[in-house]
Design a protein around this nucleic acid. Sequence first.
DNA 1: GTCTATAGAAGGATAGAC
DNA 2: GTCTATCCTTCTATAGAC
Lengths: 205, 205
Amino acid sequence: MTEHEKHTEEKIFEAATEVFEEKGFSAARMQDISQKAGINKALLHYYYRTKEQLFNAVFEMLAKKLFNRFSPIFEENLSLDEKIKYFLREHISFLQKNPRLPSFILYEINQNPERIKRLIDNLALVSSMQKLMEMHKAELKEYDIDEKNLPQVMTSIVSLSVFPFAAKGILSSIFDKLGYDFNTYIEERKDFAGEFVIKAIKKGK
Amino acid sequence: MTEHEKHTEEKIFEAATEVFEEKGFSAARMQDISQKAGINKALLHYYYRTKEQLFNAVFEMLAKKLFNRFSPIFEENLSLDEKIKYFLREHISFLQKNPRLPSFILYEINQNPERIKRLIDNLALVSSMQKLMEMHKAELKEYDIDEKNLPQVMTSIVSLSVFPFAAKGILSSIFDKLGYDFNTYIEERKDFAGEFVIKAIKKGK
DNA sequence: GTCTATAGAAGGATAGAC
DNA sequence: GTCTATCCTTCTATAGAC
């Protein structure tokens, strides 16, 4: 593959990423993608054969980009408290730079759940979660967490960071009316979310 | 309007609701809608002129259906604790019967935020929230809630009920691998979510 | 590898008969 | 009010020249 080829293929991929993320698969137009990439429409097919294949390449990259953000939490050498706060701060900051990602991924997966199957295999979620539980076994006695409600706790944590972006369109409108500002709300959320979770899962006396 | 007319128009509307909710605006086909309604494609245009207008009618109905579920909480004569628990139980039960609603509404609003503007005016959210704060003024001293973090608290509550359905495609896949079941998870969530929130907002000593 | 031109199919919308 | 037939546009995809 020559330098030039690589250049063109990358331009296409980047343009496709922008258009698909903004419009979704069905509303995206090959014409828009080629224009944004500054090349001819026929070239898209030369490099990626079909719209579907181009979309799959983009989708896989974006999904990995999003899900890989969940991994660091399993590695850091921190207390469980700090780990949760750290994760939520980082995750919200990441989504702040990629606000359209949650809506795009969630929607396209609901449209076609098969898309995610292969990716999930690579996530190694089961072992990571077991590892996490093991690592903080001693601390866990201070929390209302056990194997049974672990999915509830995990999804609650994730929802606090993802939902505001998935619902950005609605929240922005409502905040406008209430005199709040979405960006300020997100800034505050970086700390709020962590504290909210910690209080919720600490064992009451 | 004759009985027969009404019948046909309703059949179209119901078929359109199903198709739009499942596929979204762009991927939905007028052909599919007419087939599902058991009538000819031309009739869709006779009753609703364009795809856009048919979609708007459906969208408005579904959005109201979803948002009206937020109102009861402002009316019931309950303590703040009970009100939150009651709301989450009811809201999750409602979404259990309409699992595709969150994904559809969130996505279509992000695609076109104008769609929600008019609806929000009718929600009277500002006054309702003020009324709620006023009503529980005495109790509020026991909670970490004030005007400043009210949006954080409110969106956190909503996210706990809405996110699992918006992310149903992903969660189902992950749960499969972990040996959990999505429906069981939702059943448990009806109580879990309320308790989670209450603990999170109760003032620590 | 990149372009122009165009095929070929699909989808929204309308005309016109009944 | 409902149907058949068809128009017209748009979109994906390919053929073929350079």
